[in-house]
């Protein structure tokens, strides 16, 4: 009977609701935070949105800094972003922030871990659908981003694909989509954490 009900639940859509993919959350924050920052003792979660922080004006600033417009059904002014502030005792030892990015064949979820100065300490695809998935999920790919700051990405043009930071190599639409996601991630963290003054650059 219980199993029959379970089936009914499935058919009627009672129970099996997928978690809403609004914004970009870590799937298992407890585990993921520890993996990015092994010395951490805890973390704080904050939900931010461009709409609430500064509205259209802020959106224009973000777009100007990114060098590209927000487009499509899902990249909108009211998307909530999740910022994880990682703690060791009472001390902040870093930040984790993820971006949903439209790829060629599916969505990319690009998470960056930052040290307190805003320099990338880790790079992680939580989700990736790409023909180049194998190469892009290889350890060497993530390693290219470690140690970079916004200054390195400032000149990257997501439309013309110029100004790629030295040492970062790759090809294909999903590679460029990833670079756009990294640059957007930097800009938003600058706003959410450093007050949008480009301190980390």
């Amino acid at each position: 009977m219980k199993k029959k009900l379970l089936f009914a639940a499935l058919l009627l859509g009672f129970a099996a609701q997928l978690s809403a993919a609004v914004g970009c959350d870590l799937k298992d924050p407890d585990r993921d935070v520890k993996r990015f920052f092994p010395g951490s003792t805890g973390y704080k979660t904050a939900y931010k949105s461009i709409d609430k922080l500064g509205g259209k004006e802020l959106l224009q600033t973000v777009e100007a800094r990114l060098g590209d417009k927000f487009t499509g059904l899902y990249e909108t002014i009211d998307v909530p972003y999740t910022l994880y502030t990682v703690l060791k005792g009472k001390e902040t030892i870093g930040y984790i922030h993820g971006i949903n990015q439209k790829g060629q064949y599916g969505g990319l979820q690009v998470f960056l871990a930052y040290n307190p100065q805003g320099i990338i300490s880790d790079f992680y695809y939580q989700k990736l659908t790409s023909r180049n998935a194998k190469a892009m999920t290889a350890p060497g790919f993530a390693a290219m981003f470690k140690g970079l700051s916004f200054a390195d990405f400032k000149d990257y043009d997501p439309i013309k694909h110029t100004g790629i930071p030295a040492g970062i190599t790759g090809e294909g639409d999903d590679f460029y989509a990833t670079l756009r996601a990294v640059k957007k991630n930097f800009i938003l963290v600058d706003i959410f954490v450093f007050g949008g003054k480009g301190r980390q650059s």
Partner: peptide
Amino acid sequence: YEVAELEQREAGDLMLLPGTTEEYEVVGV
């Protein structure tokens, strides 16, 4: 709706379905 959001797909976009190498066109969300 949620799959489309997760995959950032809109009508007209292409998709790679897991387990296949073929391209699929999203005709509706």
